[in-house]
Design a protein around this nucleic acid. Structure first.
Length: 891
RNA sequence: GCACGGGUAGCUCAGUGGUAGAGCGGCUGUCUUACACACAGUUGGUCAGGAGUUCGAAUCUCUUCUCGUGUACCA
């Protein structure tokens, strides 16, 4: 007998197999293979990132898909890598600089040296997450790991830029953008989060220049009054028609500004008059352009007031200046009122501060292939799961705006545009630059720097990180790889990046990869929340550390526990209890295998199968089908749940408990059948389990000797055992009969246990049962198993049994079941028990009768349903008669 | 405002027209020779409220409430 510890210890086992798989190249994808291809590209985590629960969910799903595809005989590429994450990574290194003594900024270091420092940081600390993904057991082809700024990827980014520029889709212009005053860079619309905020609405008196009165103007931003160039009213507003064309005095840095008419002003809102500040508001900018108004910019890049004409405010932070400006206005007696007000403020996703609408010179992209991208999802060429994300996607594409792709950062892909040195200053200020300027030879756009670099100056800006990520599915592959594995099969990602990444990848795919879609299916995962339903975040401290969870529960336990509760289509509330269950399940598996190992080899006699053997093998066959269907429909919780129920309930609690005696004292032929069945179930089951719990499946596969029987092939590299071979020699009728008998056995055993419990007999109390058989063909085999399952000394058939008065009994599928207690029954307690049961049954009978006497039910419901109801009623009535007889026998 | 997704047992979730389910938790027993990370039993639900369709509704329709997400915005 093998001596093994009683509890499963995942840590050592998991690391062992991760190393073995990698050293044996099990994850390697061969582009030369004849097998059909299956491919996934990982959503590249930030190179600064550490593993969080979202990654665990996401990558476990990908791993399940990849491992299952390998078992199905496909050549699998799961391509890993990391994203350079411009802002996050640059900020990370800037933080290090700030910690120095004396503290430094990137400007102190200079661009070239700073970028060098970031690379050094990346080499040293970056990519921790890759190691963490390995600990989770991810079967990525690690030899193909890519980085969005590596030598293979970076040129593709520049090439994409150059092509789109040439096509006229990329241009440079001075436009209103979302400006982050902390990071001092432009951001895309997607990086701005509109957040309801409590603020104040100030109503201010703008005096008419001719002294004939005043105009009340409401604003939330009094600190920008110095930049007002007009006040606008709606031309249809009867209150103000006569004022249009007059002028008012701007309350700060006093000067006359015109009252203009513009449809944009809502008559009903506030006072009906709107101050126009083109430099600091998007819609005001448009109004300004329409009316040819001046643009007065009074904010610096880092959000301070730049207005020497107003010395009280000049140099102040924008929020300090807000309060101060109100004081100034109040001092002038121009403040009408202040009200609490809730409005939406755009907050920078990156730095968490309110963004500033700011006029600046940036690069923009008109998205390519928008129509193809929209059609692909609409017509099912690319399938979204859950499908409702298609609506969100379509809606975004409909209202799509040009993408601001330039960032005032140093870490990232520098914009591959060079200006002719002698005209550089002039070109930098040009209102618009596009392919015409390149044709004229004034600017150069290309993957390689110009041949005579001394005559050129490169653009200072870097590209938005997503401008590289959108190329990920194909730019990560070389030609050979692409020929085999592109388009990829599945993409697994969170719905939070549907616009940032998914939509843009689809467009890039059609534009750059021979018009081919980048993937066929997109599976949007749930978002992992805490038990209060809050998103997990560092600042809330509600995000458990997956590595800690792995240390305590094992990677398999974590994977299984999380997948079991991850619903499709909604968010998942994370509960550590679930992970504990995953670990417990691993322990259950381990012990079930250990049990097998204690039994020794199968003998040579021809196995003799009994109903319970056939039953479990048939359920195993069903499990094959359930798993296949669940995975093909991406229903991972169904997959996980069916694995759990089969093993714990069907196999361990029912089957194993029913056959234990075969192993101890059964006749050799039955013992062989049992050992054969156990081995078959375990072998198939471990293969079905392997995609989600790869480590323990592999470990048990080895220790149970399945690998040895298969030329030492690890489970990882073995094809899925064929379900058709199960029960090959048996007819459907044989199987049906065996299952019916087994079901009856298990149900009878339950009743028997209930009886024992009702009479307060301990589970292990060795009682005897007598069965007065009904219609089922019972056998000694079944009776022996019943005794074992019910924890009884014996269970015997006796058609002529005369139960002593008051003998506990129950109606079972086997017939009448008696538990002779030799006069130990408390008659009163028994009577009350039976009374309660009778009450319950009578209610059911009344309900059932009512239903069956309803003519419309009998006429219109399907016959099968009506028959079912009749059978049910008959059963209740038999039981009732029996209970009444028992009751009578008690008195 | 508009759109989408939820609301089922104390908790986390299954369940898309035919007797309301699982796991955990609670409560009772049991260290029964694979597993106390276990076993056996048991307790928990007007399926958010209302109306409708139907012989029959957790399930389909409408509506209200409520939570969440996305999106558009007027200072």
């Amino acid at each position: 007998m093998t001596e093994l510890p009683k509890a499963y210890e995942p840590t050592v086992v998991e690391e062992k197999w991760q190393n073995r798989w990698m050293s044996e190249g099990c994850f390697h994808a061969d582009p030369q293979s004849d097998k059909p291809a299956y491919s996934i590209v990982i959503p590249p985590p930030n190179v600064t990132g550490v593993l969080h629960m979202g990654h665990v969910l996401n990558n476990t799903i990908q791993d399940i898909l990849a491992r299952r595809a390998r078992q199905e005989g496909k050549e699998v590429l799961w391509l890993p890598g990391t994203d350079h994450a411009g802002i996050a990574t640059q900020a990370r290194v800037e933080k290090e600089l700030a910690k120095e003594n004396p503290p430094r900024t990137r400007y102190d270091v200079g661009r070239e040296d700073f970028v060098k420092m970031v690379w050094e940081w990346k080499e040293k600390h970056g990519g921790i997450i890759i190691k963490q993904l390995k600990k989770l057991g991810c079967s990525c082809d690690w030899d193909r790991e890519r980085f969005t700024m590596d030598d293979v990827f970076a040129p593709e980014v520049a090439r994409a830029f150059a092509e789109l520029f040439k096509e006229g889709l990329i241009y440079r212009g001075r436009r209103m953008v979302n400006w982050d005053p902390v990071l001092r860079t432009a951001l895309s619309d997607e990086e701005v989060i509109m957040t309801p905020s409590k603020s104040k609405l100030y109503t201010i008196r703008y005096k008419l220049a001719d002294g004939s009165g005043q105009l009340l103007v409401s604003t939330t931003r009094p600190e920008t009054i110095m930049a007002d160039v007009a006040v606008a009213v709606n031309p249809k507003d009867p209150r103000f028609g006569h004022l249009i064309g007059k002028t008012v005095i701007r309350p700060l840095v006093e000067t006359e500004i015109p009252i203009i008419a513009d449809d944009h002003v809502e008559i009903d809102f506030g006072t009906g008059a709107l101050k126009i500040t083109p430099a600091h508001d998007r819609t005001d900018f448009e109004v300004g352009m329409k009316n040819n108004l001046e643009i007065i910019d009074i904010l610096t890049a880092d959000g301070h007031i730049n207005c020497p004409a107003c010395p009280e405010l000049h140099g102040l932070d924008r929020f300090v200046a807000r309060d101060k400006s109100v004081e100034l206005i109040e001092a002038k007696g121009l403040l009408e009122k202040v009200e609490d007000y809730e409005n939406n403020v755009g907050i920078s996703q990156r730095s968490d501060v309110p963004i500033e609408p700011r006029l600046s010179m940036q690069w923009f992209l008109k998205y390519p292939c928008v129509q193809e991208a929209a059609d692909a999802v609409a017509n099912g060429d690319i399938v979204f799961r859950p499908a409702h994300w298609g609506k969100t996607y379509a809606h975004w594409l409909e209202g799509i705006q040009d993408w601001c792709i330039s960032r005032q950062l140093w870490w990232g892909h520098r914009i591959p545009v060079w200006y002719r040195k002698d005209k550089a200053a002039e070109l930098q200020e040009a209102a618009k630059l596009d392919e015409a300027d390149a044709a004229a030879g004034d600017i150069y756009v290309g993957v390689e720097p110009p041949a005579d670099p001394e005559n050129w100056v490169q653009d200072e800006d870097a590209l938005d990180t997503w401008f590289s990520s959108w190329l990920w599915p194909f730019a990560t592959m070389d030609d050979e790889c692409r020929a085999k594995f592109y388009p990829t099969s599945d993409l697994v990602t969170g719905p939070d990046i549907i616009f940032f990444w998914v939509a843009r990848m689809i467009m890039a795919g059609y534009r750059f990869a021979d018009g081919k879609k980048p993937f066929s299916n997109v599976f949007f995962t749930s978002i992992v929340r805490d038990l209060q339903g809050r998103k997990m975040s560092k600042s809330l401290g509600n995000s458990p550390d997956p590595l800690d969870l792995i240390a305590r529960y094992g990677a398999d336990g974590l994977r299984f526990g999380l997948m079991r509760i991850a619903p499709t289509g909604t968010d998942v509330k994370f509960d550590e209890k679930q992970i504990e269950e995953g670990k417990n399940f691993a322990n259950k598996l381990y012990n079930a295998a250990r049990f097998r190992m204690m039994q020794g080899e199968t003998g040579t006699e021809a196995p003799k199968f009994t109903p319970v053997h056939i039953d479990i093998l048939s359920k195993l066959k069903e499990l094959h089908a359930t798993v296949a269907e669940a995975l093909s429909k991406y229903e991972f919780n169904t997959y996980t749940q069916s694995l759990y129920t089969f093993f714990w309930s069907e196999y361990c609690s029912l089957f194993l408990e029913a056959v234990k005696n075969d192993l101890r004292e059964g006749e050799p032929a039955v013992k062989n059948a049992t050992l054969y069945t156990i081995d078959t179930v375990l072998r198939h089951y471990l293969a079905l389990l392997a995609p989600i719990m790869p480590h323990i499946a592999e470990e048990l596969w080895q220790s149970l000797g399945f690998a040895a029987r298969n030329n030492g092939l690890p489970l990882m590299s073995s094809p899925l055992p064929c379900a058709d071979s199960l029960l090959a020699g048996l007819s459907d009728e044989d199987i049906f009969k065996a299952r019916a008998l087994s079901t009856a056995l298990y149900e009878t055993a339950n009743r028997a246990r209930n009886l024992k419990a009702e009479y307060n007999l301990a589970t292990n109390k060795k009682v005897r049962f007598v069965v007065k058989p009904g219609t089922l063909p019972l056998s000694d085999d079944l009776m022996a198993r019943l005794a074992l399952l019910a924890g009884a000394q014996s269970a015997t058939m006796d058609a002529a049994y005369e139960a002593p008065k008051g003998t506990p009994t129950a109606l079972t599928p086997f017939g009448e079941l008696f538990l002779p207690l030799d006069g130990l029954v408390d008659v009163d307690a028994e009577r009350s028990r039976i009374g309660k049961e009778l009450e319950k049954i009578t209610k059911e009978i009344v309900k059932s009768n009512a239903k069956l006497s309803n003519a419309s039910f009998v006429d219109r419901a399907p016959a099968a349903v009506v028959d079912q109801e009749r059978a049910r009623l008959a059963e209740w009535e038999t039981k009732k008669a029996q209970l009444e007889a028992m009751m009578a026998s008690l008195s």
